[in-house]
Design a protein around this nucleic acid. Structure first.
Lengths: 334, 334
DNA sequence: TTGAAAGCGGTACCAG
DNA sequence: CTGGTACCGCTTTCAA
């Protein structure tokens, strides 16, 4: 369907406004700078002319001149599950709320890698990492350029990086103890490839709790943090030696595993307990009622935005590593 | 936890590279401009020096000078459900793939409104609308500045706006006919407030199909496109006159309704059919097995990114309204 | 092929 | 309080 043909117009500049209002460009600049010396009547006249012409100060010029860019990149990775997408959405809102512009980079590794080189041409105030696999490389590139890096969801031991991360090991250790107290003895785990750093941490927490009780992991499966991969991993595990608890590195996989067990008619939690990590909204739905570990997104976002602000304010402040507390959410699958 | 204290360094400029390589700034600029006259040895020397110093051309200066900004804003709204978040994530990836930088604006209306005024200070190549409530105002502001607007998910009849939208009415009309053919006669609908434009369109499609069969809508409930609101709406409807089909304006609400009916022990689809719209990944899970209308995200993203490119290429091209085909997905709840 | 110089659109520092 | 002016860092003429 065709519609109106439009004309492309040149952007209105301060000079245009100055001419229209019969003042100098300096005056126009002052009219848009709070707390600057300018006759009140003149200021009003300028703002009126600006509004009439549709003038907005060009951010590029202001930034080039030395102003804040307010640009913050988010390296979001592929966002394969709802938790990652929720975090990304919440980060965007949180950054908007503190007056920053999140410039989001997502998609597969090749696209992201290509994007990185180019996005660094923009004067970023910070780079937020949520990707997983490319993190070290990105952090190195940023460090070279003096762009502050905030890694969330995985701890990067590099100078020039602030870290925000939930207590993966503690959370999963608590979960392990809960299962053991509930009488479970043969515990299987569904983790992820090395690029999912948190999977390794969570596994470690579980193993620690098991060891303390004189137990070891019964089986180890590899997932991909998606529902489908949890479904498949559970099927693989069922083909092996029996187990009475299935600990998944995240809720998406736990929900997938739950579905598989239901399909096979295996009673949960009577025969096998199934638990996850994150406490996504879905985990609370009656259809799943999943026992899990709460990984609070709001706290994460607050911590990250706070870190962004403090880092921008004091670029030389020491690096920080902030841990976010998690807590057991006992529902019906353990 | 404290760590290394870092130094904040000045950004490396073309002048620094020029000095290091013993050439003029012009030569440095040329070295980064494909297809420009420059001695090959000199170019190599410059690129080497640039790499050593960690130089990247400053995008702000290039843009100010007249270059492409590659900046595309996405007005994403609150993203209350997984479909919206999936679309946002896919749009981000799609834009990255064509070399654009999605600058995402999300969160509640107040935040978004405040953000709009400021983001227009950046030279945006396009503005993608997914918000719902603020769309007209945003489109007007953009039109005044000559920023192309691409509205997706809701048709805006305004000059200067390209529209991409799925065939909401057709899809829901097909669904209505499917239900009628299946013997359903008392059809209830769960829609949304006026800000959810698609809910009205989908309702219209359903009503059309019902009318053609000499039927009318049995009941009308208002949801908010979230799972919880579907759950609540279904509860409200059950308190009224009986019905044998429950059509929800999106999958999230359908899944909520499904949960409520299960909680109440009402057999689906034997006693009541439940259907949705969008075909989110979850709809296919065995736990829900939802009959729905497929609203293809990949096609949406391709269409939008294509439109962005064509609009940037030819700013004066006529406005377009592109409809995306949808299709019935028959599973187990109808 | 090269360097010098003129902007791009602001901001901030001048002297007035 | 005001207007003029020198930048910010890059691209792109222009003349050499």
């Amino acid at each position: 369907m065709a519609g109106t043909i439009r004309k492309s117009a040149r952007r209105v500049t301060a000079a245009d406004v100055a001419e229209a209002a019969g003042v100098s460009r300096s005056a126009v600049s002052r009219a848009f700078t709070p707390g600057s010396y300018l006759d009140d009547g003149k200021r009003r006249a300028i703002l009126r002319a600006a509004k009439r012409l549709g003038y907005r100060p060009n951010a590029m010029a202001a930034i080039l001149q030395g102003g804040a860019s307010d640009l913050v990149a988010i390296f979001a990775g592929e966002m394969p599950n709802d938790f990652d997408r929720e975090v990304a959405a919440a980060l965007v809102s949180g950054l908007n709320a503190i007056g920053k512009w999140p410039l989001v980079i997502g998609g597969d590794e090749a696209t992201a890698r290509r994007a990185l080189a180019n996005v660094l041409r923009y004067p970023l105030e910070a780079m937020i990492l949520r990707s997983g696999s490319l993190d070290e490389g990105v952090a190195k590139s940023c460090a070279k350029l003096g762009v502050p890096v905030i890694s969330s969801g995985r701890i990067l031991h590099m100078p020039g990086v602030d870290n925000v991360c939930c207590r993966n090991r503690d959370g999963m250790a608590d979960m392990g103890r809960l299962l053991i107290e509930g009488g479970r003895r043969r515990v299987a785990f569904v983790g992820g490839p090395e690029t999912f750093w948190s999977a390794g941490e969570r596994r470690l927490g579980l193993v620690t709790a098991l060891h303390a009780a004189g137990l070891t992991l019964s089986a180890d499966a590899m997932g991909a943090y998606t529902v489908q991969s949890g479904y498949d991993a559970a099927a693989d595990l069922l083909a092996g030696p029996p187990f009475d608890a299935l600990v998944c590195a995240n809720d998406a996989m736990a929900i997938g595993a739950l579905s598989l067990l239901r399909d096979r008619g295996i009673p949960v939690p009577e025969q096998i307990a199934v638990v996850g990590f994150d406490d996504i909204a879905m985990a609370a739905w009656p259809a799943f009622n999943l026992t899990t570990v709460r990984n609070p997104i709001d706290t994460l976002v607050e911590t990250v935005t706070d870190l962004v602000q403090r880092r921008v304010e004091t670029p030389t402040k020491p690096d920080e590593t902030i841990a976010i507390d998690v807590s057991l959410v006992c529902r019906g699958t353990h």
